[in-house]
Amino acid sequence: MNILRGYSTKVALSGMAIGAIFAATACNSATSTPAAPTAAPSQSLTQAVNQVVESGFPGVQAVIDGPGGHRVLTAGVGDLQTGAPFAADAQVRIGSNTKTFVTTVILQLVAEGKVELDAPIERYLPDVVQGNGNDGNRITVRQLMQHTSGIPDYLGHGTVEGGMAAEGSQLDPTADAIRWRQYEPADLVRRAMTMPPNYEPGARAEYTNTNYIVLGMLIDKVTGQSPAAEITRRIIEPLGLRATYFPAPGDTGIRDPHPSGYHQIDGKRVDFTITDTSWAGAAGAMISTGADVNRFFIALLDGKLLPAAQLAEMQRTVPFDREPGAGYGLGLIHRPVPCGKEVWGHGGSIPGFEVRTGVAADGTAVTVTSNQLPTSRAAFDAVEKVFEIAICGG
């Protein structure tokens, strides 16, 4: 199982809308909903959206914003029981896209002189990243944001030098004992600290969710406010992202309108819409819409959220272990697409939803959401094809 990730060529086998809102009947045919006069979607894009459902997903939505206007294409259903469509302004769990929001706040704190990128995390969080060879004195804030810290994943993913993560160390959020449990960030970090480091700090990059739980704790310590409060004050409210939020403690649902999210467990499709995502926290608990996610990434890359110096730091990349040819910056992924466009974004997978995001240099922003994680390489590739056609102008 591989969840709370950015884009990956490794398949997960376990996991205000802008303009007019549309109504459509549930069907397996792509529907396009323009908010303003826009070019019609290409036949190839329409076919690709339909192919996602044919590959085994309940439903899919592609939200496209930019020079061509605002478009929403959907196929399949948002709810298998009722047959309701995937609403144009559907709110969904955006998984690891949360990491880009967290990084943006920290880089704002860097610009304000409150955090130093290359300072050891021990300076801000004494004795938090300590144990079994993990040492916060040797791990910088930058390394946490870029997944080069070497600290282990509290979910138990990945390998340590010399072997696999400790037996029984995996935290499985699809298990009932975890699905309904309330976690504090410190609980998750302490769990990670029971395992040895994956590698020496700075030796390589390996995507690890613990990094962002620690970064959420850093925000709390430096500002005196939770990551949710700072993300709301610094990003959500200034950009008017009215459908974007961080679930409150104990909030297990998703605000309406929302599709149902499904997850394959032992070959059976389980409704995973209602769940406590405190285990994901600052690494992946946020909820948003495709239009809001596009607006956030457009604003970020336009320099509306960060000074030029901090945005440049965000775009300094290292090879991304989850996708050949891609680079991971500070909570931001530079990813290749067939048409050769310069594309930055992130992506997120969490039981019930997969959300792929990106903004091209020409201003085209795309968010593709499926209400189930892919269960095969063919399914993964089907969603990726939608993203690539859409971002390339299809």
Results as ranks from 00 to 15, higher is better:
276 D>G: 12
276 D>T: 13
277 T>W: 12
277 T>K: 12
277 T>A: 07
277 T>D: 07
278 S>Y: 11
280 A>Q: 10
282 A>D: 02
282 A>T: 10
283 A>R: 12
284 G>N: 00
284 G>Q: 04
287 I>R: 11
288 S>N: 01
288 S>H: 06
288 S>F: 01
288 S>L: 04
288 S>Y: 01
289 T>A: 00
291 A>Y: 06
291 A>Q: 04
291 A>R: 12
292 D>P: 07
292 D>H: 09
293 V>G: 02
294 N>C: 15
294 N>L: 11
295 R>T: 14
295 R>G: 06
295 R>C: 08
295 R>N: 09
298 I>A: 05
299 A>H: 15
300 L>R: 11
301 L>T: 05
301 L>R: 09
301 L>W: 04
301 L>Y: 01
301 L>P: 11
303 G>R: 12
304 K>Q: 15
305 L>S: 15
306 L>Q: 04
306 L>V: 08
306 L>S: 00
307 P>I: 08
307 P>H: 10
308 A>I: 01
309 A>R: 15
309 A>N: 08
309 A>H: 09
310 Q>E: 14
310 Q>V: 13
311 L>M: 09
312 A>M: 11
313 E>Q: 15
315 Q>N: 07
315 Q>T: 14
315 Q>L: 06
317 T>N: 06
317 T>W: 01
318 V>T: 03
318 V>H: 00
319 P>L: 14
319 P>E: 00
320 F>M: 10
321 D>Y: 07
324 P>R: 14
324 P>Y: 03
324 P>L: 09
326 A>V: 03
326 A>D: 05
326 A>T: 06
327 G>C: 03
328 Y>A: 00
329 G>R: 13
330 L>R: 08
333 I>L: 14
334 H>I: 03
334 H>A: 13
334 H>R: 13
335 R>W: 12
338 P>L: 13
338 P>T: 05
339 C>P: 13
340 G>R: 12
341 K>W: 03
341 K>P: 03
342 E>R: 15
342 E>W: 10
342 E>P: 01
342 E>F: 07
343 V>M: 02
345 G>V: 06
345 G>R: 02
346 H>A: 05
346 H>N: 06
350 I>S: 01
350 I>M: 03
351 P>A: 02
351 P>N: 03
352 G>I: 02
353 F>Y: 14
354 E>K: 12
355 V>S: 10
356 R>K: 12
358 G>A: 14
358 G>Y: 00
359 V>A: 05
360 A>M: 11
360 A>Y: 00
360 A>Q: 04
361 A>R: 14
362 D>Q: 07
362 D>Y: 11
363 G>L: 07
363 G>P: 03
363 G>N: 13
365 A>L: 12
366 V>P: 00
366 V>F: 03
366 V>A: 07
368 V>E: 08
369 T>S: 15
370 S>V: 11
370 S>H: 07
370 S>C: 04
371 N>G: 00
